[in-house]
Amino acid sequence: MIPYFIKKCITLLLLLLLVSITVFSVLFVLPGDPAQIMLGINATPESLANLRSELGLDQSFWAQYFQWLAQLVTSQGSRSLNYDMPVNTLIVSRLAVTGPIALLAMVFAVIISLPMGIYAACRQNRPADVSVMFFTQFGLAVPEFWLGILLILFFSVKLGWFAAGGFPGWTVDVWGSFKAILLPAFALGVIRASILTRLTRSSMLEVLREDYIRTARAKGLMERTVIYTHALRNALIPVLTIMGLQLGQLLAGAIIIENVYYLPGLGRLVFNAIGQRDLPVVRDVVLFMAAAVVVVNFIIDLAYAYIDPRVKLK
């Protein structure tokens, strides 16, 4: 376990470094001069030049990159041009919205998909299976923002159970905040559930054909034990991979649903920052999102080794 862990950690660090270089170089070519944006269009050339050298914008690509990296590592962080606050503080406060949404969405996705996938696999090609597969086709076709809008239409406009958008803040109103993220998380969860259901089903079907399942049945184990103890544990490995990918994507990809519900999450932060050319915010948030994907995958990799000891040997 220990050598495997160390090897994985080194890969993680290298990947993070590669991601940081990519993020930095992509945004390096972004048109728009931060100094110009800070000072406005009436700024004199001298004051622009002064601010540029103050921000280090006149230095070379690598000098700027290492300066940025040093700032990140020493946790000084950069400052937002628009909010005039450290980007770290912004990220933490916005993560308090996006994080719970992503987790809750995954909870919904798992609650829906695992039972449905197992159920469908145990009744392959029978009406129950066909209807589950039909439902998942819908989940794949419906855009998540439209599902979000429909949920608002039904639960907020018609029934009046939820606010149509906005976020009161965890410190102000815990229950209200929870209600505010419930619908968006459900919309995100249902869409992910259709992919996970199909995957759980096909993975279960594959495992159920294995010899050891036949052995388990032949020695007289109850069908329930065969399915839940013998088959599910092995079938879960590919499902877990996709779940990890989805969780990472949810942290980065809640942009659209946050716009539907006017939620002050990471996605809205970066979306608005791109529009305002707030380069430090865009750069750090994009790096954070990409790093989140990498780190979640790393955790999933470790989880594999725990669930399936064979993985380490490969």
Binding site: G248, G253, I256, M289
Partner: peptide, 18 residues
């Protein structure tokens, strides 16, 4: 691999706004 690893929605938003 690198392209696959990047959050697609975010990158598309970046590209269209650049």
């Amino acid at each position: 691999d690198l392209l696959f690893g990047f959050p697609a929605v975010l990158t598309a938003i970046l590209i269209t706004s650049i």
